[in-house]
Design a protein around this nucleic acid. Structure first.
Lengths: 114, 114
DNA sequence: ATATTAAGTTACTTTTTGTAATTACTGTAA
DNA sequence: TTACAGTAATTACAAAAAGTAACTTAATAT
């Protein structure tokens, strides 16, 4: 492979195409969330949610705040770098609304049953 | 999980976050390509490239054209639905240019060596 | 002591990737 | 007519990542 791809783009694409990252961002764009809330919102297990949040925190996209209450409360939110992804998510939504048909959504569901 | 996520968005995100799909789209946005060209452009093996192109064709995003010459020539290009993803890719590039640092790109490289 | 609650982590199985070798389908050359 | 060459895949198999459910940790209430 030669230098066809911009390395920054490749890195960004690697991040965004990590399974579940898009949905996690979508959820956090609605506001600050707790671990268990995200677990309930998204079709993802605790193990992977934990992995992905750790990864996104390391990348400076997500911020983690601990409140030492009872029981302990931990809040996740987007950093500025994370908020800057809003246009990306918006364009994906845009495309989805214009180009994903109801049939395709149905097909997806029956795939999952298999 | 309740109905928190838009099913169309979830479907779109599933497609776009399939490994290599973003880079394949990026490559095809530069124009029609042959299998072996894409294989050379991208850090992806023939097996997966073949899988992904088949999937994208099934989703109506990529078009496949056979030219019965010698040797056979097969060209891949984007459909209208595929071209409609251009703004998504553009916003990702945008974000990458503004928020991925040189250090992060370097870190990526050394990860690969490991 | 024991139970409760949130936020993870571990152990284990299934699925998806990556790599290399092989096939299929032409057509050209010896 | 057998052998070789150029594309575009496909197969076989080892390695990595994902999915699931049970378990752990830490603080506090009963």
């Amino acid at each position: 492979m030669e230098e066809i791809l911009c390395p920054r783009f490749e890195k960004a694409m690697g991040l965004l195409s990590t399974r579940w990252v898009g949905l996690i961002l979508f959820d956090l764009l609605k506001g600050t969330k707790r671990f268990s809330e995200m677990e309930a919102d998204l079709p993802i297990s605790g193990r992977l949610l934990s992995d992905r949040l750790k990864m996104l925190e390391k990348e400076g996209i997500v911020e983690r705040k601990i409140y030492s209450e009872f029981p302990v409360r931990i809040e996740y939110s987007l950093s500025d770098k994370g908020w800057a992804l809003e246009p990306v998510i918006r364009e994906i939504q845009n495309w989805a609304e214009g180009h994903i048909t109801k049939e395709e959504v149905e097909a997806e569901k029956s795939d999952k049953v298999k």
